[in-house]
Amino acid sequence: MDIVQFLQRRGGAARTAQLLRAGFPKSALAQGLRNGTLNLLRRGIYTIEGADPGIVAALAANGVLTCVSAVRFYNLWQLQEPGGFQGLGSSRRPEAIHLSCGSGLVRDGVVDHARCSHPGHPYLPVAGLADVLIHALRCRPELESLVIVQSAVSRGLITTDFLKTKLQGNRNGAARAALDLVLPRADSLLEVLAHTHFVRAGLRVRMHVELAGVGEVDCLINECLVVELDGHTHLEPRQVKKDRYRDNASVKGGLLSLHYFYKDVVYRPEEMVNEVLTVLRHREVGHFAPARYAPGWVPPS
């Protein structure tokens, strides 16, 4: 492996000490600078063209990426992609990068989190998973941090009990409240978000319920309404056909059925919840029981 390949695997930037430990002599570094394959960001930090802006920023600040700026390195869910760094001359102000520097110095465009207290990434300037989640729970809005933590818990990377032991005291009350919303299992960020919205509306919600003749459904609300949360795969013709048959089976079994998509759960949750409440109210007053109010509509069995 040459020095460029080595750096590519590390986001395109590394400190001199890392390169020397990997077996690249100082002469190779000097040669790289001469022929233009390497750039010297500042003394002790080498980069290559196309280096990851976050990695470069972390090394330049003598810190590690954390919170939402580190989520992508652990392949966790996010409600929205964090804003990328803009190049010089950009008309758009760069989004803040989240670092743990521990110096207490104020840096423009940097959110400096508390010192890390757990082992970091093995070779990148990225905080360890536990610190990333703790920082996100303290920093980000509830639903945003909830989705990130749910992803890690669903993959078995960490437990909510462990995180709660690290988030004691009154100042961490909101973080612990978010942890209480984490589900034992969630197959997508839509599930944890929808569950949170429905529970907060006062509804009784069961997730991943196995129904006879239907199979597993995403949500069963008040034991009478099936709610399915459809991702991109549900738009494929074969899946659409399967979903329609499942809807038929649900209705045949005496249940109502609704479907919602990403934009509904993420961007229009109030509309989604209000629609569910409307359907439940219709059911409560008998609008879905025509045989009771119009005898003769259903032939005798």
Rank of each mutant, 00 (worst) to 15 (best):
V4D: 04
V4K: 00
Q5G: 03
F6N: 07
F6M: 07
F6A: 07
Q8G: 02
R9L: 14
A13C: 14
A14S: 06
G23E: 12
G23A: 07
F24I: 06
F24G: 09
S27K: 05
A28N: 07
L29M: 15
G32F: 00
L38D: 12
N39L: 14
R43P: 08
I45T: 14
Y46G: 00
T47H: 02
T47Q: 08
E49S: 11
G50C: 00
A51S: 02
V56P: 05
V56N: 04
A58Q: 04
L59N: 09
A60C: 10
G63L: 02
G63P: 07
V64L: 02
V64E: 13
T66F: 02
Y74R: 11
L76Y: 08
Q78A: 08
P82V: 06
G83Y: 13
G83E: 15
Q86T: 08
G89W: 11
S91A: 03
R92G: 10
R93Y: 05
I97K: 00
G102A: 06
V106L: 06
R107Q: 14
C116F: 08
P119V: 14
P122F: 00
P125M: 02
V126A: 00
A127R: 01
L133V: 01
L137K: 10
L137W: 10
R138P: 11
E142D: 12
L143C: 15
L146C: 11
V147E: 04
V149F: 14
Q150L: 08
A152P: 12
V153E: 15
R155W: 03
L157F: 13
T160L: 09
F162N: 15
K166F: 03
N172H: 15
A174I: 13
A175Y: 12
R176P: 10
R176E: 15
A178P: 14
L181C: 05
L181G: 01
V182T: 15
L183P: 09
P184I: 09
L193D: 03
A194Q: 07
A194M: 07
H197G: 09
V199Q: 13
R200A: 13
R200M: 12
G202Y: 09
R204C: 04
V205N: 14
R206W: 10
A212D: 13
V214Y: 11
C219N: 05
C219T: 03
I221A: 00
E223L: 00
C224F: 13
C224D: 14
L225C: 08
V227Y: 02
L229H: 01
L235R: 06
E236Y: 05
Q239T: 06
A249I: 07
A249N: 15
A249P: 09
A249F: 12
V251Q: 02
V251Y: 02
G254I: 09
G254Q: 07
S257V: 12
Y260D: 05
D264W: 00
V266H: 01
R268G: 03
L277S: 04
T278H: 06
R283H: 08
V285A: 00
G286N: 03
G286K: 01
G286A: 01
P290G: 05
P290H: 04
Y293V: 11
G296N: 01
P300M: 07
P300E: 13
P300F: 12
